[in-house]
Every structure is written in structure tokens, then in C-alpha cells.
Amino acid sequence: MTALAALIRRDIKISLRVGGGALIGVLFFLTVVVLMPFAVGPDLALLTRLGPAILWLGALLASLLTLDRLFTADHEDGSLDLIVMSRTPLELTCAAKALAHWLAAGVPLILATPVLGLLLNLNATATAAVALTLLAGTPALTFTGMIGAALAVTLHRGGLLLAVLVLPLSIPVLIFGVAASQAAITGPLSFGTPFSILCALSLVSLVIGPFAAAASLRHGLD
């Protein structure tokens, strides 16, 4: 456990310091959301209706883009070799790295949601619903995206290819995240159904992600 705690502390420290990616993710999120009114027009009623979808898409892209370096940074400086050799099971190490990434890059997105909700004319209920669905859904994005991040070590590149591989896998999260937010705002569906499924998706990815990422790292080193 001390090993995992040390890893989480280190990763959070690095992402918050100079050169870290945590704040860039929030900045990207902000920029995507601010771009939307220029694309659809400054019609507040329309923006309110699209609000949850815009916020979810922004969060999806932001968390995916920051995931790019999750393993490649450790691979380039040789840390990954030592991590693979260590006495901690690689699956747990992967889970710890994803958790650290979520704490450093995912949580700020959720915290930024209320501010961005104001820009999109969402009321308090709607903002709370979006923030709650993001809280339940972003772990799924991180833990699914982690598979792509681990494949990026084999590929010697991430970026666009990683996005192409991972985005189709995150469609279910997007569907239920936006549906739960919409249900809370307009109904008629109850908020509970899609929200429970969203939580289930997060739990499933919590299991699949670390195993697939660990397998990918074991097979992908050279």
C-alpha cells in the first residue's frame, strides 16, 4: 500500500508542478465550451438545451487529451521499466496511476463545471446534475482511456491514433452521462435509471481498464 500511495502522491505532485498537465486539461475544457456559442450562435435557449451535451463532450475530450502522457512519460525516462519490475502487481500500479490522473485532471473538470454552466445559462439543478454525472462518469473515461494510454507505449506515439482507438469505447459513458443530466433537467425519464447505469459503466471500466493496461504494458516494452 505504501508503494501505491507513494506513486499516487508522486503523480499528483508532478501534474500540479511546472510542466504538468492538470491545469491544461481545465483550460482546454474551458476553451471547448467557450467555442460552442460561436458555432451554434449566442442563442441562450438553444445553449441551455445543448448545455449538458456540450459540457460532457468537453470533459470527454479534455480527459482523453491529458491521458496521452499517462504511461509514455514514464516510458521515456525509464521509470516504467522499474515500475514493471517492482513487487507491486502491475494491475494495481495501473489502477493507482489512473486514480492519480483522475484526482489531478478529472476532479478539476468537475469543479470547473459550475462556472461553465453559468456561461451556458444552466440553472442550479442542471449544473448540479451535470457535475454529479461527471463525478460518476469521468472515472470510466479515465480507466477506459488508460488502455489507449498503455497502447501508446507500444505505438511510440499517442495523440490522434489514441483518440481514434478510445473514443468509440467511451460512447456508452457519453450516452448515459448526457441522458442522466437531461433526465434531471427536463424529464420525463427518471434520473436514477441512466445514472445507475453510468455508475455501473464506471465500475466495469475500473475492472477492465487496469487489466488491459497491465497486459498491454507487459507485452509492449522493448
Partner: peptide, 16 residues
């Protein structure tokens, strides 16, 4: 698990 590897790459984080 019983070995240290000292490779070409330093496994150091410049930010720390």
C-alpha cells in the same frame, strides 16, 4: 523483484 536495473535512462522526474 529482487533486482535493481540501472539503465541508460535515469528514471528521474525533473519536476521533483
Amino acid at each position: 523483484e529482487q533486482a535493481h536495473l540501472l539503465g541508460h535512462r535515469d528514471a528521474l522526474k525533473p519536476a521533483l
